[in-house]
Simulated assay, not measured.
Amino acid sequence: MRTNLRNVRIEKGFKDVDELADLLGISASYYYKIEQGKRTPSINLAKSIADELNHTVDELFFNNKLDESSRSQDRSTTKEVI
């Protein structure tokens, strides 16, 4: 979690945690602990972080990014067991 969250934060222009933490209404030290994996945010806070960084909660905290090829996979190729 920590690497993904940190990389996205920096990519979105938040070089240090102070500005983002201020936007979220939390202390920079608390945000940093979330980023380090030492604290788990509430679902509301996780959603706020995701919204500020223009990502989903899954992408930021669970490193889940839906693979386009897996969504469009042809299901007719699965064999039917008789």
Rank of each mutant, 00 (worst) to 15 (best):
T56Y: 04
A28Q: 08
N54E: 12
L66V: 13
D18M: 05
V57A: 15
R39T: 07
D74Q: 09
N63R: 13
D16W: 00
K33C: 05
S27A: 14
I43V: 15
D58I: 11
F61G: 01
N63S: 15
E35A: 09
L24M: 02
A21G: 02
G25A: 11
T77A: 07
Y32C: 14
D67Q: 09
Y31H: 03
I49W: 00
K65N: 09
P41I: 03
K33M: 11
D22H: 11
H55S: 10
A46Q: 06
T56A: 04
S69R: 11
F14A: 01
V17C: 03
F14K: 02
A28V: 00
S48N: 15
K65Y: 13
K47Y: 10
T40V: 14
Q36F: 04
D18E: 13
S70M: 14
R39P: 03
L20D: 00
S72D: 10
A46I: 09
R75M: 07
D18R: 10
S48C: 10
L66G: 03
T40N: 09
I49P: 00
R39C: 07
T56C: 09
L20G: 01
K15Y: 08
A21Q: 00
T40D: 10
E59H: 10
H55F: 13
P41G: 05
K15S: 06
L20Q: 00
D58T: 07
L66E: 14
I26V: 15
K38C: 06
L24S: 03
A50W: 08
V17K: 00
E52K: 15
F14C: 02
T77S: 07
A46M: 11
S70N: 12
A50S: 14
Y30W: 06
Y31N: 01
Q36D: 08
R39K: 13
R75N: 04
E19S: 07
L60M: 05
E52Y: 07
F62M: 09
Q73N: 11
I49F: 02
P41K: 05
R75D: 13
Y32K: 13
K79W: 03
P41D: 06
F62A: 06
E59S: 11
G37I: 06
E19A: 13
L60K: 04
N44M: 12
E35Y: 14
E68M: 08
L45K: 08
K79V: 12
Q36W: 01
F14Q: 00
K38L: 11
K38N: 12
I26M: 10
I34A: 00
